[in-house]
Every structure is written in C-alpha cells, then in structure tokens.
Design a protein around this nucleic acid. Structure first.
Lengths: 181, 181
DNA sequence: AATGCCATGTAACCGGTTACATGATTTA
DNA sequence: TAAATCATGTAACCGGTTACATGGCATT
C-alpha cells in the first residue's frame, strides 16, 4: 500500500494540485510506482480525511483546482512508514515470462511479434529514463538526497535494460527450429 | 490476466490435482507469477466451466482430490493467447524504491534495517533459483523447449541479483551523514 | 479417541483499472 | 459560438489477498 506515501512524498517535495501531482508522479517515481488520476483524487480525499494533508482552492484559479499540502501529522506518518517492516514484499510478475513457458509447452505460436513490440516499447522507456538522468543528474550527484534519487532512477534504468536483454535472448531462441538443437 | 494460461501451461505439462498444481507452480513459474491455492481452485472451476479442462476424482484417492487435464479447446485457447497482443503490459512496482524517495525527501528514518531484511530474503530466493538451475539444467540445455525454460529461470536469477545489488548500493548511501557529500 | 495435517472450498475486502460525467477554460 | 481540452470526480468491476470453514486421513 504505497500510494498514499508516494503522494505524501511528492507533496512534501512541493505542494500541488491533483493534476500537477499526476504529472510530477510520472517524472519521478514512475519507474517503480504509477497511479491514474482517479486513484490520485480518491487517495488525496483519504489523506485529507486522515488529517495528513489539507487543501485549499487555488487563488487565481481557472477552474476547481485545489492545492494540497502536507501537515505535520502527514510528515510524521511518512517517517513512520519509511521505517515500517514490510512483511510480504510485492512479488515480481511478468506476463511475457508466462508466455515463454507456455510457448515451450505447446510449441511455436507467434510469440516473436509480441516480443518485438515489447522491445520497442521498453527501448522508448529506457530512452526516456536516460534523458531524465541526463537532465537531472548531469552536474554530478553530491548530496545524500540526490544520490538516493539517482539510485532509484538508475535502478529503473538497469531493470528496463535487463528486460530488453532477456527479450532479445528470447527472440534468438524462438528463431530456432522447433525440435532443433 | 495470466493466471488461467499459466495454469493451462502447467496442466499441459502434466495433469494434476489443485494442490499438486499449487506446488508445481511454485517450482516452475514462481519467479514471474504466483498464485495462492484459493486463486487456483477458483480459476480451475472457471477453466472447467469454459470447457478448457476437465476433472475427475482421483482413483485411489485419500480424500476429495480431483485431477485436471487440458482439453483440445484448452490447448487452442493457450496457443491463441500466446500470440495475442498485450496492450498494456503490467507496470513494474517496487515499494522499496518508493521508500527510498520518501527517505530522500524527509531525511533518515530507519530504512536501513528494512533493506537488510530485504537483502536476506532476496539472497534466500536467489539461492533457491540457483539450486533449481543446478538440478534442472546441469546436463546442458539442448532443445528449444529447455532453452526457453532455462531463459525464464535465468531471467529470474538476473532480476533478483539486480535487486540485491541495488539494495546494497542503497545501504551505502543511507550510511552517509544526512547533509554530507 | 484426540490431535494435527492436508485438500478443497466460501466469503469479504482492497488496490488498481476502466468507463463515464460534469463544469470550466481555451481554441478554432 | 462551437469544439476541443482540462481538472475533478463517480461508479462498476476484477484480480489478488486474507480469514475462515469443512471433512477426510495420518499420527499419537
């Protein structure tokens, strides 16, 4: 249940409206957490009900925009959660790997086209992450805070790169004749 | 929605009871898909209702054991699914990364203990995967089928190893003085 | 006979997803 | 002024998780 705390983190970094949060979310934690705008609005309402954030209409606003900021209780909650024991870490899931095993069991079934699409998609993601890295960490990484942020981004980069590498190997194997050695 | 097809794959490899499936699931696809016994029983009932598998009481059974086997329609469905276009691939999620960013935002909050627990857990998983690999692929990997199975396992190994490596780097950074460079 | 284990199952819940609505601003 | 866009929101659904139940077998 990381979404509320991911939102608190984003709001600690800078108070924002829901829509702005959705956009910033995408640029910071997106390699490892995601949320649709519906989730974000629902969760912001809960955070406010819990007394962890408070909202106010944006002054010279265009529409119904509301800006949220973290309260002291929210900061306390965030710090508490960071140190909390995670009993059952979320399991890794990757549908492509399930398909590869299925293909192994029943023989060639046109999986290669899907893998090529995946490689294209993941390469686009990788390029985006590398661009983030270039823009945000070009001048070096000097503080503890920046090192942590950089580590998260580098983890995302390494993870995507690994997925691409494995997909390429899968393509090579799939190209083999079904009963060939 | 990979669970039904992961089950079909397992059942194609060998007809089984629900409980045996749950155990074998754990040994084959566990790096990339998981299911509790409740999910498995629920899904088996659906597969049977769809006409993809059929079940019969186990002959000399101890209790209520039922054995499931894949029907021709189930095989067709599995092959269809393998080649199917995956529109929105499941996003990667990793709560530890969210915590690292939170820690970056609000300062030290005891995250290192949690990371050490994670490293221990992941190393146990890695050891298990390596043992699978030693037992199942020691004699070489000669056929296309075995190469695919091996690739899936190696992907699991590489993924876990990467997670351990990133966790170790995180520990090093967390050990820095909060405002130090 | 009592206890524990195992296979099978039911029920409730929850986070995440998808489809759709509404009122306002901006653009053509 | 009509059309497109944007921020905010409601509602339904679904896969996965958790808690609990039941009845048979094995062990003591």
């Amino acid at each position: 249940m990381s979404l509320p705390h991911a939102l608190l983190t984003s709001l600690v970094e800078r108070p924002s409206t829901g829509a702005e949060l959705a956009r910033r979310f995408d640029r910071s934690i997106s390699p490892f957490w995601q949320a649709t705008h519906q989730q974000i609005y629902r969760e912001l309402a809960r955070l406010e009900a819990a007394g962890w954030v408070r909202s106010a209409p944006v002054e010279d606003a265009h529409g119904r925009e509301r800006s949220y900021e973290v309260l002291a209780a929210g900061r306390r909650e965030l710090r508490r959660w960071i140190g909390e024991r995670e009993d059952k870490p979320r399991a890794v899931r990757d549908e492509l790997m399930v398909r590869l095993r299925a293909e192994a069991a029943v023989g060639p079934a046109g999986l290669d086209a899907e893998i090529r699409r995946r490689i294209e998609r993941e390469e686009a993601v990788l390029a985006r992450y590398l661009e983030y890295e270039r823009r945000a960490f070009a001048g070096g990484v000097d503080t503890r805070e920046r090192r942590l942020q950089h580590l998260v981004l580098r983890s995302g980069i390494r993870t995507v790169a690994l997925r691409i590498e494995m997909a390429r190997e899968a393509l090579e194997i799939l190209a083999m004749a079904p009963s060939g050695k």
